[in-house]
Structures are given as C-alpha cells and as structure tokens.
C-alpha cells in the first residue's frame, strides 16, 4: 500500500484526467468554477446533503454515490453527503415515495434544521415516473413535503445531479 502511494507521488500519476466541467445535454455544461464560486459565497464552502431513498430502484442512489468517486469527487467543492439529517442543509430525495416510506421521509424532513432545502432527484421523485398510479406510491415527493428544486432523468446522470444542485443555489442567490 505504501509503495503504491509513494509510486503515485513520485510519478505524479493521476488515475484519470481531471475534468473541468461535465456535459449534460447539448449546449448545457456544468462548469465547476461556477459552482465553486457560488459555494464559496453562499455556503462558505460547506454544503451538506442528506440522501433519502423513498422507494427508488436504487439507480438514483448509485448515481449520487458516483458523485463521490475520484472522477467527480464532489467533496473537493465542499459538498458532502452526511450521515444524519441533523447535519444537513439539503435533503436529496429519490423514488416515488412509497406509502411505507412516507412517515420516515416526513420524520427526516422535520429532523433537518432550518433553513432546509429539498431536491427531488429522478423522474420518480418528480412525479412518480414509471410508478405513477400504483397503489403503493404517492406519485412524487411534492405530495409529501415541500420541494425546492427538481432533477429529472431516469436516473439523472451524476453531472445532471451536480447541475441540479447548482440550480438550487441559483435560486437562493438572487
């Protein structure tokens, strides 16, 4: 292990090239510098996110998990996922909110200190997505708790999630 670290230090090897931005859809690119600037001013470099799975198929969570891999490395911007809603500024909710998760989601929401923001992540969270109309779901996060921003996609790519977070900040900066 030590050898590996030393080798990387000496050869200055980088596992992957450091991206400066991510393409989303044609014409839209998230520029890391933009996010960085906002983060510095609004949140003093510390945006804490609590992820809540409210009945998703798990692809949405994996995309959020991917945000923390060395490729996207969200933490270098000062954004991090935290273990408790009590430490969080933002709740990132995925899934159509199954009936059996409704109570847990509400409790998590009320455990988050104000000012809090809620982002619905993925088509399911936005309006129920493919599960819309099933007897066991509530057709979207907005039917359970107030939502401040949405990130469409099934699942949204990691870059789309970054853009969604950036949009949330846009809203607050006005």
């Amino acid at each position: 292990m030590l050898k590996e670290i030393l080798k990387n230090l000496i050869t200055r090897k980088r596992t992957i090239t450091f991206p400066t931005g991510f393409p989303i859809e044609p014409g839209q690119t998230v520029k890391l510098v933009d996010i960085q600037g906002k983060l510095d001013t609004i949140f003093k470099r510390s945006l804490r996110i609590r992820m809540v799975d409210a009945g998703s198929c798990n692809a949405c969570e994996w995309e959020c998990q991917a945000l923390m891999n060395p490729f996207y490395d969200l933490q270098r911007l000062g954004i991090d996922f935290v273990a408790s809603p009590r430490h969080a500024d933002v709740l990132l909710v995925s899934g159509p909110v199954s009936r059996q998760m409704e109570l847990a989601l509400k409790k998590t929401y009320f455990a988050t200190p104000e000012p809090r923001r809620v982002v619905a992540c993925g088509d399911c969270a936005v309006n129920g997505g493919i599960y819309r109309g099933s007897y066991a779901v509530t057709d979207g996060v907005a039917n359970v708790i107030p939502v401040d921003a949405i990130i469409p996609g099934c699942p949204p790519t990691p870059s789309a999630i970054m853009l969604g977070i950036a949009q949330l900040m846009n809203k607050d900066v006005k």
Partner: peptide, 11 residues
C-alpha cells in the same frame, strides 16, 4: 423490509 414496496407486480 418492504419499505420500498411499490406494488410492482400489480402495476
């Protein structure tokens, strides 16, 4: 378990 039960089979 079954917190994420979404009624898929019926859906």
């Amino acid at each position: 378990l079954f917190y994420t039960h979404k009624g898929t089979e019926k859906h």
